[in-house]
Design a protein around this nucleic acid. Structure first.
Length: 630
RNA sequence: GGUUCACUAGCUCAGUUGGCAGAGCACCUGACUUUUAAUCAGGGUGUCCCGGGUUCAAAUCCCGGGUGAGCCA
């Protein structure tokens, strides 16, 4: 703790010594700072509001003048000057004011007036201590600029940088405008699972997590697409979900591991309808938060009211003179790509090469809002083929500033075609594309029940917010962007801490114990038994036996030891492989089901609810095979 | 993953050729009853990101690591 924090704790103690709670309670707020400025802007000269108002907020500046002082109070709406005066407050209250620090949160009761310098000000008649701030805020003039602290301690960023607050309020308003737009059009907002066993609906690597009770690896969703289409099958007709998706990929100014998308699906519509909706949603959002459809993004003027539409092939043709869709063979397309210097991979077909040419030569030139249509089927496994040309799909992507903002298409509703597309994706996966779609059998089943002709659309909310708030980085539109843990914290092995590993509570209350043996055994007899640690090399159920398991054990010698044990009702053979057990190894061989059993594996047996319960003695895997027990 | 840059007081930043760790704001003491980046006088509060190395001597040079930002893939 540094000097500044010590001083603040001393002041906290001083409040307590005066009988004032440094962390206060409920406070009735009649005005926000902005309300005061608006409502009392007419005050002139010696005039003072007749009304006594209350405001609450954080002290952002204190300008002491001895027996009278100015301060600045900040609340959600902005800042307002407040005036503490000894004559008004009295000795005791003014001495309390002297204990206030920048950053403290107080509630103020007072009258409004205009100072000689012309600033609307609240004269403090009384104030309540609401929260003592124990840490110094950043400097008033430069504020907080360190990007790392801004992201890690967003609360400080929000206190110090009003434009950050504005950005996040804009984000909320954008999302609200989208909901309003869709709700007005009879869409149903739904929620679908984040956790699942198939990560489908997009080309991306998923995050893997684990369900302990089910002992099941699960994925965090990479898209909401397939579940939403299931709901269209179910008859919802118009659905959308605005929510978080997770992609286990690189991070940069445009990508965060978790981000927000909206996907929407409309039965009996096609991709052209969804293009109109895309345009409508974006225009509506811009109008709501900017009041206009024109804005500057990072110094470039963007006009949303003027949207271009062009097919991918035409766009590539315009840029390079090459007509990839005229190609009859992959070789032709490869030659074209080579000619214009577009790299491609071996596994690409004509469509893949066209897409590569688009990404290489066209994408970043699409500064003004542009719909690209007619994506190759090869790269569009969930989109319906174009009726005239099966090589391409009825799909669009919406670009602004060279960046993909939205993606939509007429949904593929032919289950047989869909299954073939999934199989193609599996081939891509085997050919090394670990982002290729997984087969989702149940989705095929759903399509087999019948998906109406449907148009679907996805929009990257974070990117839209970036555009409309002129934010250079996605981290500037995420309240808490993903950050690496600082040295010393985090970076723990989460699996080691997972609840499954936490000690299981076991109920021993019903255990019945067999009476102890009365008769003693002498040490000599005892020491004749050779107990050893053994490792289970293999374990299988003995054929035709309900009870017996056959263990192949490493007892530390070169020879495998085989022991049969009647414990199948307690253990499945596969769960025992690799375990370290205890066995007596100097018993004479005994034939069981025609197999020699050489020794006995030691179990712990007790009665519980008059049932016999059994636990194999399993010991630490650190104990080597053959270790002798004394 | 590669590469460049940054990391010094609570914040924003200086720190020369390797030679006692600096400024402004904030903070502390005092003055001041309409100031507003208040002013005036006095006071420096530090794991120079971490760990090694070179050196009589390292914030500074070398090596390794951390976090962040940017560029490339």
């Amino acid at each position: 703790m540094n000097e500044l924090m010590k001083v603040r704790r001393d002041k906290l103690a001083a409040f307590e010594a005066k009988g004032v709670a440094p962390f206060g309670h409920r406070f009735e707020v009649s005005h926000h700072a902005k309300d005061v400025l608006e409502q009392f802007g007419h005050l002139e000269g010696e005039e003072e509001s007749s009304e006594e108002i209350t405001i609450a907020g954080r002290l952002m500046a204190i300008r002491g003048h001895g027996k009278a002082s100015f301060s600045v109070l900040m609340d959600r709406s902005g800042r307002i000057q407040i005036y503490f005066k000894l004559d008004v407050l009295g000795e005791e209250k003014y001495s309390q004011f002297k204990l206030l620090d920048i950053g403290d949160i107080i509630g103020v009761k007072g009258h409004v007036f205009r100072t000689r310098r012309g600033e609307i000000t609240v004269r403090v008649d009384d104030f309540d201590m609401l929260s003592k701030s124990l840490r110094p805020l950043p400097e008033k003039f430069h504020g907080l600029t360190d990007t790392e602290i801004r992201y890690r301690q967003r609360y400080v960023d929000l206190i110090m940088n009003p434009e950050v607050m504005n950005t996040f309020v804009a984000r909320t308003n954008i999302m609200k405008s989208i909901r309003e737009y869709l709700d007005e059009r009879d869409y149903i907002e739904v929620e679908t699972p984040v956790l699942g066993t198939i990560a489908g609906g997009a080309a991306a690597r998923p995050f893997i997590t684990h369900h302990n009770t089910l002992d099941l690896d699960m994925y965090l969703r990479i898209a909401t697409e397939l579940n939403l289409k299931r709901l269209i099958v179910g008859g919802m007709e118009r659905v959308y979900e605005m929510g978080r998706v997770f992609r286990n990929e690189g991070m940069d100014v445009r990508h965060n591991p978790e981000f927000t998308t909206i996907e929407l699906y409309q039965a009996y519509a096609d991709y052209t309808d969804l293009m109109d909706i895309t345009e409508g949603l974006v225009l509506n959002a811009a109008n709501k938060v900017l009041g206009t459809t024109e804005f500057d993004y990072q110094g470039t003027h963007i006009d949303l009211a003027n949207v271009k539409r062009i097919s991918m092939n035409d766009a590539v043709k315009e840029a390079t003179g090459k007509d990839f869709l005229s190609c009859q063979t992959v070789e032709e397309a490869r030659a074209m790509a080579t000619e214009i210097g577009v790299p491609y991979e071996e596994r690409f077909g004509i469509g893949g090469i066209l897409n590569a040419a688009f990404e290489e030569k066209v994408e970043e030139t699409l500064i003004q809002p542009t719909f690209i249509t007619g994506h190759p089927t090869e790269i569009s496994p969930l989109a319906k083929r174009n009726p005239e040309n099966p090589m391409i799909t009825d799909r669009f992507e919406f670009f602004i500033y060279g960046r993909e903002l939205a993606n939509g298409f007429t949904e593929l509703n032919d289950p047989i075609d869909q299954e073939g597309r999934f199989l193609d994706q599996l081939k891509q996966r085997e050919a090394g594309d670990d982002e290729a779609h997984e087969m989702d059998r149940d989705f095929i089943t759903a399509l087999e029940y019948g998906l109406p002709p449907t148009g679907g659309l996805g929009i990257g909310i974070d990117r839209l917010v970036m555009f409309l708030t002129d934010s250079a980085s996605i981290r500037d539109v995420l309240l808490f962007p993903t950050m690496k843990p600082l040295a010393g914290e985090g970076k723990k092995n989460l699996h080691a801490n997972s609840p499954a590993k936490v000690e299981e509570k076991i109920d021993f209350s019903k255990v019945q114990i067999e009476p102890l043996f009365e008769e003693c055994v002498d040490f000599e007899t005892f020491s004749k038994s050779d107990f050893r640690a053994v490792k289970v090399k293999a374990c299988e159920a003995v054929p035709k036996s309900k009870k017996l398991l056959k263990f192949t054990l490493d007892d530390g010698t070169d020879n495998d030891r085989v022991i049969l044990s009647g414990i199948h009702q307690y253990y499945e053979p596969e769960e025992l492989v690799g375990k370290t057990l205890i066995a007596i190894v100097n018993l004479p061989p005994r034939k069981m089901m025609g197999i020699d059993s050489c020794g006995m594996i030691i179990s712990a047996v007790h009665q519980e609810d008059d049932e016999e319960a059994l636990n194999l003695l399993m010991v630490s895997d650190r104990i080597p095979a053959g270790a002798k027990l004394y």
